[in-house]
Design a protein around this nucleic acid. Structure first.
Lengths: 142, 142
DNA sequence: CTGTTTTATCTTCCTTGGAATATTATTCTG
DNA sequence: CAGAATAATATTCCAAGGAAGATAAAACAG
């Protein structure tokens, strides 16, 4: 019973600590908090509608709308009208957003590698990712 | 490079989704959000000073101070003066806090089991916990 | 013992994101 | 096509926690 609690507690704590570390590094190196990096990354493969962005980031639509607002203000994103649905807008990376993403991606990977690699060899990292994926699939088909 | 990002992204998303599910269940069954449950659980083994509570929960001291305020108002926690240091206060469970914790613990474990067990057999859950622990140890010696 | 430094906590301001609601556009029914 | 139902987004209000500064008590230097 209590192992269950420890199990999730530890997972949550891990996520918090990893987030803090990577966030601090990205802020220091690129003035780009991790939350913004993630938004950029979600849009790397092309524009998304606000709702799809929300889903990909596991936040609410309202939240995604506001994230978009802020990052449009910062010049990292742009809203363009969806040609097929005038209610919707397609959120897209600006040139500045794209280059912020490109610049930060290396920092992100390096920082994470610095933390994770000494603790887990490649096989274990791989195994862990696979376990996470299996749980994600069970949770939302993703 | 990009696998690194997916690796952490997936971990973060998993944490968000698990949090949401368990949080919703605890709210529904006990009117006790997961953040409060975690606070109660952190204090289950005995009183802690605010700073120690903060550390155990991986939040800031200021945050812990405010969590304590709210939960004192709710009657779940109490502050008692630390006999050895008049700057500090020892945060402790009230009877109501203890019984809320006891009641919610079963719900928490059951909810988590419902989600995790179909996706991961016991051996994998165990393995995953061990990987998480190894990373935590690397991150903060915990 | 007095002044400085450190420690533990609290407080204020700010950002973030959720919940609920409003708004506007689309789709569907008849 | 008119009206109702639905869908996509935006907006308002609220709770939570971080950062930085403010207190208050303790520890320490002399």
């Amino acid at each position: 019973m209590s192992e269950r609690i420890t199990w999730l507690n530890d997972l949550i704590r891990l996520e918090i600590l990893l987030w803090e570390r990577v966030d601090a590094r990205l802020r220091a190196a690129h003035d780009l908090p991790l939350a913004r990096f993630q938004t950029l990354h979600a849009l790397a493969d092309g524009p998304l509608r606000v709702g799809d962005l929300a889903q990909r980031m596991s936040i609410t639509v309202g939240g995604a709308s506001k994230v978009t607002d802020r990052m449009v203000t910062l010049g990292l994103l742009a809203r363009e009208p969806d040609p097929t649905d005038r209610r919707a807008s397609r959120v897209t990376l600006t040139a500045a957003g794209r280059s912020a993403l490109d610049a930060a991606t290396g920092t992100y990977a390096a920082c994470l590698a610095e933390i994770v690699d000494p603790a887990l060899p490649a096989a274990d990292r791989q195994r862990m990712h696979e376990l996470v994926r299996r749980l994600l699939t069970a949770l939302d088909g993703g």
